[in-house]
Design a protein around this nucleic acid. Sequence first.
DNA 1: CTATCATGTAAACATGCGTTTACTTACGGC
DNA 2: GCCGTAAGTAAACGCATGTTTACATGATAG
Lengths: 185, 185
Amino acid sequence: MTRDAQATRERLATAARMLFSRQGFERTTVRDIAAEAGVNPALINRYFGGKEQLFAEAVSIDLEFPDLSGVDRDRIGRTLAAHFFTRWEGNDDDDLLRVLIRTAATNGEAAARIRAILTDQVTAMVTHVAGSDRARERACLIATQILGLAYARNVLGLSNEDVAPETAVAMIGGTIQRYLLADLP
Amino acid sequence: MTRDAQATRERLATAARMLFSRQGFERTTVRDIAAEAGVNPALINRYFGGKEQLFAEAVSIDLEFPDLSGVDRDRIGRTLAAHFFTRWEGNDDDDLLRVLIRTAATNGEAAARIRAILTDQVTAMVTHVAGSDRARERACLIATQILGLAYARNVLGLSNEDVAPETAVAMIGGTIQRYLLADLP
DNA sequence: CTATCATGTAAACATGCGTTTACTTACGGC
DNA sequence: GCCGTAAGTAAACGCATGTTTACATGATAG
């Protein structure tokens, strides 16, 4: 048994991300997390202070928008749709947006975290592309579509059999394009 | 204390809908439900067999699409958007779609229920309006937008301050219109 | 080599959960 | 009016949870 506090911490955080992502906060037990990390449950309290703090520390997120500077102005929506679509394509079990979408359903802190992401990251992107005029409204509209796509795929389990990826990227890309740049009433 | 089995059953079902809606399945306890209904927790088992069965019975849902027969073909999307928007406007605490959206995040059965709604009700509506060709794809696209709107409002708590209702109805209506009737790639 | 302290463990603790059991109470037919 | 039965209750059960405590162990400085 090799002993390395920092490595153990990270094993716990990684295991936590994976399980929170798959099952949400309530259904994931500290014993599950510890077993997945191969250590003793008590270490969660030693290193993080408790389950809540582990969640707060394990789940922080960056949407990682692609660089849009070289993209045709009328293809930005499609590029963003493709970005999110492929990001969730793989079954990487520690995608943090997935964690939040699942967890926010019953956890106010997670919901606040997503709102912050919208306010900060999406609005910044919209401002950068379309200017600051009504940027927040546009960001919220875009968020409804992106979150709906994420929810359908991650929570409901809709797959490429239900909507072909090309169709989804093209149509949802068109929607984002409208929300970004079309005139608002 | 007046005794009426059927009334008690309904009090339990109503209380369950409200609490499941507010907190999701895991966070809602049978003791909470019984207290809200003003009866003994054991009656949940007597009348429904258990918490799971109570959930299954209390949460069945009808999307109640508006009658679209008299609506201009190019205003159908907007009509649908307005329908869903106003439906969730009020704070009625027993809206069943809200229950499902919250609960599906950590409960496979609820997720299956929403998929069934999509398959049955939304696809039927699409078929009726736009014909059966690729109706399921169109239904899934519409679902991503509707669910995203519902999620943003009910789970994240986005309000009319974030996006003005007129803007949301117009823009999201336009999206549904495209998903319903525009050529798919 | 050994003393020491961070690291890890096992077991118990306190609590809250869904459910079951044994019991009490009010209603309706006779 | 009585009594059988449906309706309702109180209390306990068994289990799983997050957390704490007391103890064991391995790396490392002197």
